[in-house]
């Protein structure tokens, strides 16, 4: 994901313990719901969010921190690229698994 992304972005990662995909919120917490994700609209905002995310990585809460393009055009906030959209929902071939089942899946 070395590609430079322009436009609104959100930050996703995987939790260290169970590997579940999580999204960084404006409060600096990690949510399983992409709807809760903070959207950075400028380089400064992104830098701020990334520093929070990377601190969580150093603190061994999450791994694989990635900033990805956000798509705000639909009803709900979603990552723009299919790969990260998939990460926010669950496998398309198993509608019974992942966050697509319910926002509280596994909780």
């Amino acid at each position: 994901m070395a590609k430079k992304v322009t436009g609104p972005q959100l930050i996703l990662a995987n939790r260290l313990d169970d590997g579940r995909a999580v999204f960084l919120t404006a409060a600096g917490e990690w949510s399983k719901q992409v709807a809760d994700a903070a959207v950075a609209n400028s380089d400064d905002e992104l830098e701020n969010l990334m520093s929070v995310a990377q601190a969580a990585e150093v603190a061994n809460q999450v791994v694989s921190v990635t900033a990805v393009a956000a798509d705000e055009s639909g009803k709900a906030l979603a990552p723009a690229h299919i790969k990260f959209a998939m990460q926010s929902r669950g496998p398309s071939v198993r509608a019974d698994l992942g966050y697509q089942v319910s926002p509280n899946w596994e909780q």
Partner: peptide, 12 residues
């Protein structure tokens, strides 16, 4: 990885 454990999209 030498124990077969990957990190994938949704989980390990």
């Amino acid at each position: 990885l030498m124990n077969g454990l990957y990190l994938q999209l949704h989980a390990y």
